[in-house]
Nucleic acid binder design. Structure first.
Lengths: 145, 145
DNA sequence: TTGCGTGCAAACGCTTTGCATATTA
DNA sequence: TAATATGCAAAGCGTTTGCACGCAA
């Protein structure tokens, strides 16, 4: 089952399969949130999701959105991206990739991993492992001054 | 003027020179905060700085610590590192480098840039420039389950 | 009925702000 | 004295929590 790359809602069945694969019980709200997030590869904040859901007249509370996003992030369904210390984004792109952050617009853009190569990692003791590597490239309008 | 790499406070004069180089007026509180931060290459949060300063019986308010850290970050004296959306760290290491974040202890460790190579950056329009590349490697205890 | 998910509102933690006072040039 | 920095407390904002209610197995 693949997620459509166009801005269309995925079906309930597709959402259900996604949750099932991650061992998440498919409740009404979780399905709605998944359908929204996986409509395309994107980066949404809890606030944006809440706003969009109420626009779709879905009945979801703030607490449930936060609970659900945390659940999705814990189970690896989505990736939590921290750019600004004031807000979290949830990334529905499951493939390894990096991010381009536009400081002026606040937008987040995916960067194919091939374009940024991690040559090596510092030696770690056997007791520890790398959980993830986050690369954020901050870009903004060129300074002329 | 170089910053001592050992855990000793830098002198008022050294702190004053650092601020002067960044066009920052040298007030009592700013000097104290700079002396603390630049005692060594380290990553401190506003909270930690406030606690340490009061331990040193320096008279600084919370607001001033935040104002000062923002000022230092804006002028490039320190680097703001965002790891967790709940807390900001201020890095007194002026050289380009990356970070290793220990998820279990919350500690942040510097990684020499040579160990992580950025092979290339995605093409950008001429109107935009790269402001910085943040690489955070999350490590934690090895999973045995 | 037992457990889990949801919704609401209150609580929380970190950061910012408003304003009076103090310091500096 | 004019401008800027500080301190305090309150406000702000995103996120989490406590608890009652609802729903499904």
């Amino acid at each position: 089952m693949t997620v459509p790359s166009i801005t269309e809602q995925i079906t309930r069945e597709q959402a259900q399969a996604l949750l099932a694969r991650h061992g998440i019980a498919p409740t009404e709200q979780r399905l709605e949130i998944a359908r929204l997030l996986f409509a395309q590869h994107q980066h949404l904040s809890a606030e944006q999701i809440l706003a969009q859901l109420s626009r779709n007249s879905a009945r979801v509370s703030k607490a449930t959105v936060y609970n659900t996003l945390n659940l999705f992030a814990e189970t690896g369904l989505v990736r939590e991206v921290v750019i600004d210390s004031a807000k979290r984004f949830y990334d529905s792109n499951p493939d390894p990739h990096h991010h381009l952050f536009h400081t002026d617009t606040g937008e987040l853009e995916d960067v194919a991993p091939a374009q940024v190569q991690i040559a090596g990692l510092p030696g770690l003791p056997d007791s520890r492992e790398v959980l993830g590597v986050d690369v954020v490239i901050r870009v903004g309008p060129r300074h002329t001054d």
